[in-house]
Nucleic acid binder design. Structure first.
Lengths: 250, 250
DNA sequence: CAGTGGTCTAGACCACGCT
DNA sequence: GCGTGGTCTAGACCACTGT
């Protein structure tokens, strides 16, 4: 099997990460197979996430990307800083995990005021149809798309405040600081994690290569018993992130 | 594009989850395309996780599977029970999240005593080469493989104890109860989450259909400052699980 | 057995990247 | 322009599923 042999070469390091595979023409000669067979083999490796293919250039053993670590402590750090009354630092919860400064960031944003869907209302613990501020974000760092997300706030909590103005994004210190400015101190965050293959829209926006799944987070931010923010769907390409949770049992 | 049209039919519900797609022969006629084109389209949908294909039967819109929820509270529940001095219940941390009883479980296990690799030693905070008990597990519930994992314990902590005997698995109450029996009370758990496409070996063992990623967990179990258990690689098919973390910030 | 998908061949033309 | 991958056709034979 052509795929097996190429996989073996990549895993053994004979074809190191980032290196070009032999061209289809070369492989046709080497394996005495037809082009369809060769392409099928490469397609399989692509689906497995072993190689990435670039039109007109060739197929590469997948290079190892720097991984951003998203730790559960990121919430506590920001909260501690706010409690000390300090200003927002150059780096914040989102950025400090990867050593990237705000200035290197791009943030696309789109705000809408919409009635809550059944799913969203359930996560907030309110009646369906309650008005919310829906904020869609796409984060880019140094040109590389990092994540897209839809974060919602209850409209009667934010209407008329600076939080409702897209021009104030990115807000130094993120959601935690934003809610703090409204007099809300968060007491907990619940995150539910799943993974799946990206849909076409996500592949385009996040520039996800073939064979890379996405990690999805559904986040509820609590202030006491009350849910004050819901991120319905934070979508992060899985080759760029590691989630880190510490569960304190004392 | 054939794939686009089929994707549209599935997403619109014209082909409901679990339903058979038209056969390749039918699609050749309907789209006036060659077999290669049709197969490529179905292959794409398979890679996207939209359809599953069964040899000799056909391709189905992917059925929705019941999802097992793995909550961070599972550790606390078990710990609370042990603190109360109760016996292990019929359901335990692992099973209670999905309503499956121990009796419906199968557990393949394989124990080895090996020197710690550099990565493992780093996670334990010990010298590389320190002897550990390496335990490989495959869990099945009602015939469906649920996860495979490699969990390690420091050998000088468990040698000669019932914990080191594979015959005592599955141990009622799981790792927490196991460590408790050694006089170790855990104080925290750190879990690092990633996702990727499965390798061939995992596809076979866990019976993962095409287009389904796996979620991987690296777990460190703490007793105070000390790491008492490390699960290097817990591998769970992503279509069967949701991880649930509550981060307390009070 | 007929019908399904799995694999393969041997050609063709098009689109992209580079020099 | 030349080499790369992207897409497509029109056949062939094999392997699995069901009646």
């Amino acid at each position: 099997m052509v795929a097996d042999e190429l996989r073996r070469r990549i895993l053994s390091g004979a074809i190191p990460p980032g290196a070009l595979l032999p061209s289809e023409t070369t492989l046709i000669a080497e394996f005495s197979a037809s082009r369809g067979t060769i392409r099928e083999a490469i397609g399989l490796l692509r689906a497995e996430g072993m190689v990435v293919t670039e039109h007109g250039r060739g197929s590469y053993a997948r290079p190892v990307l720097p991984v951003r670590r998203l730790g559960s402590e990121r919430y506590r750090h920001e909260l501690d800083r706010l409690a000390r009354g300090e200003d927002a630092p150059e780096e914040t919860s989102f950025t400090r995990d990867q050593g990237i400064r705000w200035s290197e960031y791009q943030l696309d944003r789109e705000f809408r005021e919409v009635p809550a869907s059944a799913a969203l209302a359930d996560l907030f613990g309110v009646e369906p149809g309650t008005m919310v501020l829906e904020r869609r974000f796409v984060f880019r760092a140094q040109g590389v798309p990092q994540q897209m997300s839809t974060s919602c706030l209850l409209l009667d909590m934010v209407a008329g405040t600076p939080v409702a103005d897209p021009a104030n994004e990115p807000w130094p210190g993120g959601n935690t600081a934003q809610l703090h400015s409204l007099g809300v101190t968060i007491t907990g965050v619940r995150e539910r994690v799943r993974a799946r293959m990206p849909v076409a829209d996500e592949v385009g926006t996040l520039r996800i290569p073939g064979g890379v799944p996405v990690v999805t987070l559904t986040r509820q931010t609590y202030a006491g018993e009350r849910v004050v923010e819901v991120a319905l769907d934070i979508v992060i390409p899985a080759d760029r992130v590691e989630l880190d949770y510490y569960i304190d049992l004392t």
